[in-house]
Structures are given as C-alpha cells and as structure tokens.
Design a protein around this nucleic acid. Structure first.
Lengths: 244, 244
DNA sequence: ATAATGTTTGACCGTTTGGTCAGGAACACG
DNA sequence: CGTGTTCCTGACCAAACGGTCAAACATTAT
C-alpha cells in the first residue's frame, strides 16, 4: 500500500456503495442530524453521534474524514430540500393559491422535518459560517426571482400590495417557528391543542389570505369571486416521511 | 480561613458590590452573551468569553462559580426583559393598537437586543433544558392571560376572529426572525434595503392590520372609523440601547 | 505606613475531545 | 476453500476543556 495502511475511506463522491456502506452512512447522517440539530455543531460530540448511531467513534471516522465533514454533508444535502418548495412557486398559477400552497408546504416541512429545520436555524443563528456562499448566491437569486413574480401579481392588481421579500420572510418565520420553537409551542398549548400544527395551518392560511386579498372596492369585477378554497395539501396524507 | 484559601467569591445574590466587581461582572456577562448567543452553550468556551471580556479564565471564575452559572444568570436576567412587552398589553386599550404596539415593541427588541434574542432561540431550539420550568409556568400563564384578553376582543366583535395563541406565536416568529436570522435577511436584502427593520415594521403592521380588521360588513357602525394610525413607537427614537 | 481585604495570575490537574493507527474480524468471490 | 477486500475495534495521542490553587499583586481603610 503506497499511501496509508487504512483502505481509502469512501469519500463523499467516489462511492462504490457497498450495502454496509449505504447503511452506515445513512445511520451516521441520521444520528448526526439528530444531535447537531439539538446541540449545534460545537455542542455536539462524536461520542453522542456514535451512541445515537450505534457505532463506535473510530468506525464513523472510517466513513467520514472528520466531524466537520459530517456536518457539511448534512448541511448541503439539506439546502436542496429546503429551497425546493419555493422553486415550485409558479408564475402562471393563481397568486393566492400559489402563496398558500408554498406556506403550506413549508409548514409540512416543519411537521415532517423538524430536525432539518433546527439544523438550518442553528447554522443561520451562528452567522451561517458554512453556507453563507449558498445564501448570498443561489438562495438569494431564487428569492429574487420569486419576489419578482409576486411583485408582478401586485402590480397586476391580483393581490393586495405587499413587499414580496418580507412576505417570504414572513412565511419562513411563521412556519419554521413551529419546528424550531416546538417545545415552547407545546408547553404553552399542552392540554389545549393536541396537534398545534393543524390549528397553525388554519391560522397561517387565514392570515395570508386576509393579508393578500384585495378589499372589495379594489377587486376586479369581471368575474364573481369564487369562495376561496385553501389548497388541499396536507389534509389527510403527505408525501414526506422522515419523522424519528 | 476556615473553608478555603480564596476569598469567598461574590455569589450572585450576597453582593457587597465593589466598583471592580460591578465592572467585571458586567464585562463577563456582556462577553458571555455575545459568545453564547452565537455558538450556543456547548459550543462556547470560557477562553472565548475571556478573550471577549479582556479577562483571564481563572479571573472570570473568581466572579462566577462555573461556566454554567454565567449562562444561567444570563438566561434568567433575560426572561424578565423578554416577557415585559407582552405584560403591557392592556385589556382596556384599543385592540388593534394594543396588538400593533406589542408587535412593534418586539420588533424593537430584535433591533436593539439581537444577542438576547439569539440566546433565547438557542435555548429553545435545544429543548429549553434550563428554562422549561419558566416556560411551563410563568410564561404559559402570561400567554394564557393575554390570549384570554384577545379572545374577549374577538367575541366582542372588535377584531376579526383569530386564534389568540397562534396570533401571539405569529408575532413572536415574525419579529424574532429579524434578529435570529439576521445574516440571512441581510444577505438577501443587501443592496436593496439598507435597514430591513424599517420595512419589516411597515410589513408586519400591515399584515396584522389586514388580518385583524373586520370586513366592512361586520364592522360596528356606531362611530365613524377613524383612519387607523400605527402606534408611533420607534419612529425616530427608542429607549432601548444595548447594541454592540 | 501598614494591615486587611479584594483582585489577578501562572502553573497545574483530571477529563473530554477529535482524530490516528495497527491489527483483527467479517465479508465477498473465484 | 482460500484470498483479497472491506469493515471494525482497542489502544493510543495531542490538544483543548472546565476548573483549582497558592501565591503575587492592588486597593482600601485605618
């Protein structure tokens, strides 16, 4: 062996995936997500992650070169998932439906991917040291693109005037709050609401609807306004399944 | 000396405050707030805090018995400040004004006390291990009390129907977002808005107003509705001064 | 001045941390 | 079956961690 005794670790990309590799990498990432999302990067130890994954510390370092590498992989895997709902916001759709659907999908993610939400929150709170590039680049571009669409709707008089960027921030904060601050929400609502997320959906839908619906006087009169139906995502079933 | 060589450390309560004590305790707490709020408890080290405070590690431990004690003191000092705005929500006030004022004060706090906001966020994200009692007790009671007031306003037909608890969550999330996710907000808005918080105030005010204002048909007709003025907190000056 | 008190430091300690490594165990495959 | 590869572990390491302590240094009051 020319360059080291230990067989070359299966680096992130060049992966001849063995079954065992697949299983353990998944185990590690899942455990790391659990631990990192609760304690932050600095507050987490490989021992904790190993315990959660059922693997020894050196064994984990056989699959990943370092603690940092695990964290980075989690974060970059997450970025795609995280921005996906916004990508689907369609300029050709009915404005209010599009925005409500988006909020709804984000709220679903708070229900189904709370750990991912907390991981992201931790990263941003700490100043986004590892994903600032992605935020200043792709994320910003995506937001600008969709904000332009919403601005177009405003100018066409199809929704009430609103700052599109801050509208997007509002949707982010309103929805992610139920994942990131879950223990607070549950502590306050315990005994009052069994599933806060159901009521949260009603609340956020109403909030956005009232905010974006034009007053009667300004509404276009061409057609009778149909009673606004909330987009029926999440009523009964969902496609996301990542709960622990 | 009966119980130890080192002079009794100035424990949190029994404080014969020397000038030096006052100065250094303040220095330590301020530095600790900076560090803890960015890296979380586990991710922070006494060395970091010491560097920020300009004090050596053992010297800090002369004023506080442990890293944990510093963190606890910060957290409990914060709790009072944090809940104060909600306490001032007045059942006898004009409903919309009261709620807008509350949101406004919370937004002010995001501007003036971002580190405190992040410290709190960190604690909740991590499952509130140190302040769960305060959340299940005093916080919950305060929220219930104020939610009852809001519910009363709804039943009197003075604001549009709304779930008061989720309304409070909404205000928390909408406002704290600008402190906790500040780097993201700035990264997205940089070059577009110099001071995001100004536009944020407009946005949140409009959002809450549209959400809580009754439709024309339902509005009580006794008096002419005066043009709604936003409560003029924060327009020009503020009482909070804790920026770094 | 001087004694008593309050403050700061450098050296130190035990533990935990991320990470290495040689070698053994389990596996795949001809 | 045997042999090459993949996987796993126990022992180990250096650095960093929270914290202690005796002694030196300031400060204050008398």
């Amino acid at each position: 062996m020319a360059h080291g005794t230990q067989t070359d670790a299966p680096v992130t990309l060049q992966r001849r995936q063995t079954r065992i590799q697949q299983k353990n990498v998944r185990l590690i990432l899942d455990a790391a997500l659990e631990v990192f999302s609760r304690h932050g990067f600095g507050g987490s130890t490989l021992e904790q992650i190993g315990k959660a994954a059922g693997l020894s510390t050196p064994n984990m370092l056989y699959y990943f070169p370092s603690k940092d590498a695990i964290h980075r992989e989690l974060l970059f895997d997450l970025l795609d998932v995280w921005l996906d709902p916004l990508r689907t916001l369609d300029a050709d759709g009915e404005p209010l439906d599009e925005i409500l659907s988006y909020a709804c999908r984000k709220l679903e993610m708070s229900r189904d991917l709370p750990r991912e939400s907390r991981l992201f929150a931790n990263e941003i709170i700490q100043g986004a040291p590892r994903i600032m590039d992605a935020i200043e680049g792709p994320l910003r571009e995506l937001v600008d693109e969709k904000a332009a669409i919403i601005l177009g709707w405003v100018e066409e008089g199809r929704i009430a005037p609103v700052n599109p960027w801050h509208l997007i921030f509002s949707i982010w904060s309103l929805t992610q709050h139920y994942a990131d601050f879950e223990v607070q929400v549950r502590a306050i609502l315990s005994g009052r609401e069994d599933d806060p997320l159901i009521e949260a959906k009603r609340h956020i839908t109403a909030l956005l609807t009232r905010m974006l619906t034009l007053p009667d006087s300004a509404r276009p009169q061409e057609t009778v306004i149909p009673p606004r139906m909330t987009p029926d995502c999440w009523d009964g079933s969902s496609s996301l399944h990542n709960r622990r």
